[in-house]
Amino acid sequence: MKPILLQGHTRPLTQIKYNREGDLLFTVAKDTTVNVWYSHNGERLGTYNGHMGAIWTVDVSNDSTLLLTGAADNSVILWNVKTGKKLHKWDVDTAVKRVEFSPDNQYMLFVTEKRMGFQDMIYIFKIDHNSEKQSDAPVKVIIPGTSKVTVAAWSFFNKYIVAGHEDGSVTLYDWKETDPEKQVVRTKQVHSATITDLQTSRDKTYLITSSKDKTAQLLDLETLDILKLYQTDTSLNTATIVPDRDFVVLGGGQAASEVTTTSSHQGKFESRFYHEIFEHEVGRVRGHFGPINTVNVSPKGDSFSTGGEDGYVRVHFFDDDYFNFNFEY
């Protein structure tokens, strides 16, 4: 397969995300622009300009009308996807590391970083779909208080919020609970190092975490039981679940800051395909010349994209071999 290279960023990619139908691809990087691309041919539809710092995270609503971005300029911006216009800006105390719309698009969560004397927090805001103005008052604020939160996601039916921590633990929060003591439903120590990415399955009943401890794990979203463990030979930055095949895709690599010299071969900058159930590596795709920071599979299941430390986004369309492959067991 011949990948499409998207060169819309000048700094390392931080997150990429397909919309629900898989026709649009949103990319954010440590520069200040948000790009949106047509995924089928790599044509750039537009850019969202307005952030003043590195953008850490992006999410798009189910109907592809609203876009949410969180950045290191201590703000979250809500955009109109079609026009690129800024709809609202929320200012918080520290950098925003993760944003996500709830499955019903009524709420959104922001994860802010623990820095400069401020606590790390998970803010929950309600979206007002009927008026132009959005409320600046959060519906709820969760203050984890333990290890720093790095990533978070919504569960099925907005029921829980699941968060990954710097110490490798995963916590399930009942965010509707008003008493902060009772908000934590359960906590499990699943990794031995920082959790770098946390992505849910399409129905949001299970999730995959990737960690610097060179493993990725598939967890049940309600019980947080470890369902599967994927072991690799390099620290992982990202992991995703392929929607309609039994695969997971992991990305990572040795960061340039951790070594003196890194060639693309030694650096292990490949996206790795593992069998979701048998935990077996089934294939690799090379191409990036820096660690892979973020990976996402199109909801259609026909392509996947990776964003690297090298500033490129590579969109790969699977060829016939992929669709004809059957794991024999």
């Binding site: 397969m1 011949k2 290279l5 060169q7 691309w37 395909f273 590596e281 089934v282 294939g283 071999d321």
Partner: peptide, 20 residues
């Protein structure tokens, strides 16, 4: 902004890939 990269291969196999 958009280019087509060099051909890459995703060879899926039962027994995995590489030395690992």
């Amino acid at each position: 902004t958009t280019n087509v990269g060099e051909q890459v291969f995703l060879k899926l196999s039962q027994w995995g890939t590489g030395s690992k």
